[in-house]
Amino acid sequence: MRYKGKVHKLGDHIDTDAIIPAKYLVTYDPAELGRKCMAGLAEDWVDRVRPGDIIVAGRNFGCGSSREHAPVAILGAGMRVVVAHSFARIFYRNAFNRGLMLIELGDAVDRIADGEEIAIDTEAGLLTLCSSGRTIAFPKLPGFIDRLVQGGGLIAYVKNRLAHSGA
């Protein structure tokens, strides 16, 4: 997969209450949740986002609650990929299950600046800083997750299994 977009830089330990506060968890509609994406940082945070933009965050992005509403809110706001130093584990599973791409970069996230444009090629494992043309390599997805994402995510995987088992 390839992605290109403007960076919104965030810090360490962005928790799921920041991504989508609990008071908005009375729906699972992506568009509705998307309108409140990052409302735990600032109520109008999402106003700065245009479709295709990319969040670049620090350590432990998505920590806290298991709410799948968090990746759904990010997708609902029009963003399809998040780059971070590292991700919290429940968020990590939820994102791939929902088709939100995650790129774990480690300390190299520090080389990406707020507002700049970046391009990502997941097959090549390369992130490019568009202004300078410099690249950052990242490890490709683990085989199991790669197959899950390529197969269309967890919903498609289960659908396929149920169809074959006749359950």
Partner: peptide, 12 residues
């Protein structure tokens, strides 16, 4: 803890 879709798969 898991998300809702993982739990849906486990429920099924």
């Amino acid at each position: 803890g898991l998300g809702s879709t993982d739990v849906a798969a486990a429920m099924a």
